[in-house]
């Protein structure tokens, strides 16, 4: 689990500036690093707070979808993971889908292999420690 911030994408940031509209503040989330997720997803509450509209649609399988995948809205966002002694890990534009129930599970986002593929992720189970390098 990591603390992260979700914001509008770089393109949306510029579009809002050009339209002289307010930029929604970054949303702080608890995010689960999930090697079992091929894509990343975020609780709808976070996406609503950012005032996002869908810019994509993708098919998604979860344990609850059965044989046929669900068709989910996809949103463009930026993701920032702060660190104490180094520049933050930041992706200015990436795609996420929306999924509920994360809040009940104690987090608001899953960061899947689409994000982890940009990092070195090491899990040392014996000492219960993970390292995220970028």
């Amino acid at each position: 689990m990591v603390d992260a911030f979700i914001g509008v994408s770089a393109g949306k940031f510029s579009a809002l500036q050009q339209a002289q509209q307010q930029i929604p503040p970054l949303q702080r989330v608890r995010a689960l690093l999930d090697t079992g997720a091929s894509g990343s997803c975020v609780d709808p509450m976070v996406l609503t707070a950012l005032g996002l509209q869908a810019t994509g649609k993708v098919a998604v399988h979860t344990p609850t979808t059965g044989a046929a995948p669900a068709i989910c809205n996809q949103y463009d966002v930026s993701i920032l993971i702060p660190t104490q002694n180094a520049p933050a890990f930041q992706i200015l534009t990436t795609a996420v889908t929306e999924h509920e129930f994360f809040k009940a599970q104690g987090f608001h986002a899953l960061l899947g292999r689409d994000i982890l593929s940009r990092c070195v992720f090491i899990y040392n189970g014996q000492v219960k420690l993970f390292t995220l390098g970028y």
Binding site: L32, D34, G36, A37, S38, G39, C41, P44, K57, V58, A59, V60, H61, T62, P63, T64, T65, P69, A70, I71, C72, N73, T97, E98, H99, E100, F101, F102, Q105, L110, G112
Partner: peptide
């Protein structure tokens, strides 16, 4: 299709692709 192994309820839309 993307695959998410955790039990979550997707926000679905009623369109097939």
């Amino acid at each position: 299709a993307q695959f998410i192994s955790r039990i979550v309820a997707p926000e679905t839309t009623a369109v097939s692709i």
